[in-house]
């Protein structure tokens, strides 16, 4: 295959990855890794490098819009970033000692979990009474809805912080934003309204991914020939996705993608098990 054909096919694939990632809320990085490894037979380390870049681009692009709307809880994001960045650095260190096949299997498992998470019931209710720590850390806030500003409080700060550390480790190890785990920590453990947890998670992904990306850049995981089509393709796809989201309800699409992603996850696990990475 010549470089021009490879670049064009990868550009189209990355565009689709960005589109799917933004419609399902999984993020482009999650689709980029199976695309590169299963379709193009690229070493999983290059795929992880490219996926990290896709995650940063996606997160920064979308976060700028949400901050403007005042939904993102910046204090909460900052506080939890201690957990995710420390986790991400640990993940990048562990990665050196982890066989690529194990990484592939782990990726498949996380993919299955993420697909399941997109289908679960969302937390809409806002707590009126928070835990002591939530007051001390000034994490309680309000966010705009169509019925005006809604105040919310949160609890289980310690549990949320722990899950965030795990999310950071997985992000550093696998190169994904691990948005599903981040939302789990904020939604299920800390009881934050869904809209706040998704946007705050998205806000944090850029910093989390950057913490391990600086290590991977120095290790040579970021190949220019792959980074170029992946970055531009995913950004384009995510942009189209965000435009489409305002005009349609992607509920049916979500189910289709979840089934597709389950197949991909199983293939990653199967190939990893058979030492094909």
């Amino acid at each position: 295959m010549t470089i021009i054909t490879f670049t064009l096919i990868l550009l189209a694939g990355a565009y689709l990855a960005g589109l799917v990632g933004s419609l399902t809320g999984l993020g482009g990085g999650v689709v980029v890794i199976p695309l590169l490894t299963l379709v193009f037979h690229v070493d999983i380390r290059y795929a992880i490098g490219a996926a990290l870049l896709a995650s940063i681009a996606n997160s920064s692009g979308a976060a700028s819009a949400y901050i403007k709307e005042g939904i993102t809880n910046i204090r909460l994001g900052m506080f939890l970033e201690i957990a995710t960045t420390v986790g991400a650095v640990c993940g990048a260190i562990i990665a050196v000692y982890t066989p690529t096949n194990t990484i592939a299997i782990l990726f498949g498992v996380i993919l299955l979990f993420s697909a399941a998470m997109t289908l679960r019931k969302k937390n809409m209710a806002a707590l009126t009474e928070g835990s002591k720590l939530s007051y001390k850390l000034k994490l309680n806030s309000s966010y705009p809805t169509k019925d005006g500003e809604v105040e919310y409080k949160l609890k289980n700060v310690g549990a949320g912080f722990s899950i965030m550390t795990l999310a950071g480790v997985l992000s550093g190890l696998l190169g994904i934003g691990s948005g599903a785990l981040k939302v789990l920590a904020m939604d299920s453990a800390m009881h934050i309204p869904f809209k706040v947890s998704t946007t705050t998670s998205n806000f944090m992904i850029g910093v989390t991914a950057a913490a391990s990306a600086v290590v991977y850049l120095q290790r040579g995981y970021m190949d220019p020939g792959i980074a170029f089509p992946v970055m531009l393709g995913v950004l384009g796809g995510a942009f189209t996705g965000s435009k489409l989201l305002t005009r349609m309800d992607p509920k049916v699409l979500k189910y289709i993608f979840c089934v597709a992603i389950t197949f991909v996850a199983v293939e990653m696990i199967f190939n990893g098990y058979n030492h094909k990475f």
Partner: peptide, 28 residues
């Protein structure tokens, strides 16, 4: 990245792709 990519394609378009299935790392 776009500017670099255009120059990259202009220079290498007809060469075949590097062996991405083997990881080179830092030496690249």
């Amino acid at each position: 990245v776009f500017i670099g990519g255009i120059i990259y394609l202009h220079q290498y378009q007809h060469s075949s792709i590097p062996a991405y299935h083997t990881f080179v790392g830092e030496q690249a």
